[in-house]
Amino acid sequence: MSKIKVLLVDDEEELVFTLSERLQFRGFDTDAALNSVDALRLASINDYDVAVIDLKLPLVTGQDLMKMIKHIQPDLKIIFMTGHCSDDQGRKGIGKGYFDCLIKPIKIDILFESIIAAVLSYPEKK
């Protein structure tokens, strides 16, 4: 069984690399991108199972990035991170097509569970 591949996108350098490393600890194969250009580049090279994207990015929003990535990998599961929305009502504004939305600061266990849940939600998988 190959490792679950996760793409992390956040403009906070310290956050995204630390998070990436922590997820590697937990057995994921992770790549980190600081902006949407890097993220798209990585997405076109690698096959990911899950992308964890900050809603607030420079240049394009998280939602826009999601749409672009889905052009490359239509089945990719998206988990959003946000400092803004705090409950169901807030999430409604984001639109459809994502798997989960987590509120910053994210507890690593919750993120972990969410990624696992996303992977498990694939109809037939590894």
């Binding site: 906070e12 630390t18 922590r22 400092g83 803004h84 910053k104 600061p105 507890k107 690593i108």
Partner: peptide, 28 residues
Amino acid sequence: AAGVSHEINNPLAIISENAGMVLDIMSV
């Protein structure tokens, strides 16, 4: 409140992740 919370959430996340990272390292 909205402005402040949003701006503060990122540094909070960094603190939290880094502390978590150290804990992760220590656990192994």
